[in-house]
Simulated scan of single mutants.
Amino acid sequence: MRIILVRHGQSLGNVDELAYCRIPDHALPLTPTGERQARTVGPQVRALIGDGPVAVYVSPYKRTRKTFELLDVAAERIVAEPRLREQDWGNLQDPVQQEMLKHQRHAFGHFFFRLPNGESGADVDDRIAAFLGELQFRMLMDRAHPKTVLIVSHGLTIRLLCRRLFSWSVDLFESLSNLDTCENRVLDFVDSEWRLDRPFTQWRDSPDGATQLGPPVP
């Protein structure tokens, strides 16, 4: 079994933080650069999928759906999965409050700090846990479900998906960087456990000494 994780291409919010003050997060589009990124990475993603059937689970946000469209992947089933959406930042119409909340979140930690009218990382972690439980059951028990899955989602959501799957500590999660836009990671099920093809960029050593990777895939 294989799960391919892809972050969306560069969006308007990645280059203009004030865009969140005038456009709902779910409606932020890709930039022209983001569209080029998705087209460019498409052949690599299709090669990772191979010739077999693939099921796609994509965040319903505009930037993730457009990224998937531009990857040009022929899928047996496509599911717009709300549990794969970005962390809910609440109401961001006030740019001063937005900047203040970003500083508070960085100071107190991305996992436990809950944004007013929004979510904490822990809240996202909970919904990802429910999604992963269902997905693994389908991949293992449903003969009609493809054994290869493509997930197109968001930076923090992808990090939390891996945190859940590998039981990473909160300290380790908060020591990792998001994937770059249109960057991918591959998870393979080998010897009754999931393996990550390569680590996330780590901006500090985890305070608890935890590390990302187990034994290498043969």
Rank of each mutant, 00 (worst) to 15 (best):
C182K: 06
C21R: 03
L196D: 13
E76W: 05
V190P: 06
T40Y: 14
E81F: 04
F68I: 06
I151P: 00
F137E: 07
L30V: 06
E193P: 14
S169V: 05
L176A: 12
Q98L: 15
A80Y: 15
V186T: 08
P207C: 04
T40Q: 13
D16G: 05
P43C: 14
R159K: 15
A75L: 14
S175L: 00
C162T: 12
S206C: 11
A47G: 10
P29T: 12
T31I: 09
Q87R: 15
M139R: 09
R198L: 08
G50R: 14
E134L: 12
S177T: 11
D123K: 01
H110T: 14
N117D: 14
G109H: 10
C182V: 11
L84A: 03
I3N: 02
V41I: 14
E81H: 12
L70N: 00
F166E: 04
Q98V: 03
R198K: 13
F173G: 02
N91C: 02
L28T: 02
Q87T: 13
R2W: 09
M139E: 01
E134G: 07
D205R: 06
Q37P: 00
L71S: 00
L12H: 13
C162W: 05
R22A: 10
R77Q: 15
L196F: 14
G121E: 01
H8A: 07
